[in-house]
Amino acid sequence: MKKDLNFELNILPVLDILSVLICFLLLTAIWMHVGTIDTKQAIGDNAISGEKNPPSLWVTLAKDGSIQLSLRDVPKANSLEESISKISTGINWSVFSSKIQTLKEQMPELRTTVVRPEAQTSYGDVIRVMDQLKKYQFEGVGLSPLG
């Protein structure tokens, strides 16, 4: 009796595995959205143009996680010099958040902020501070170079 040499190669399971692999790759490798936190930096002779500076909030970040808040170009009655102590995990985010929220409620016209980190401050912390400021509608967030 002659043996039948014709046979069908079942490629369905192979294609199914490939489909699953493609799904896996699409979900893990590609779909990471990137957003941005924008800053407006001082350029050229902005600082000496003679115009009156708008009221601004200066946020000084120390490398140990403590934060200094100060208001500039505001009437003396509104002046502020406040520091937020660090906690064991670094910056005390809840206190910082509540302080700037209170400040914004008291002075809605306050829009400009300058973030002044120290050299060893983590970039992630700097971004998080700017993120918090954006959250409370501080639109003109700038970064100060190291002194």
């Binding site: 990471m32 957003g35 936190i37 924008d38 407006k40 930096q41 001082a42 050229g44 970064l143």
Partner: peptide, 18 residues
């Protein structure tokens, strides 16, 4: 920051993961 200021680039966009 210093170089961008000297070059006249005003807007810096820091990439983040939303």
């Amino acid at each position: 920051l210093r170089a961008s200021s000297e070059a006249g680039i005003e807007t810096l966009r820091f990439a983040v993961v939303p």
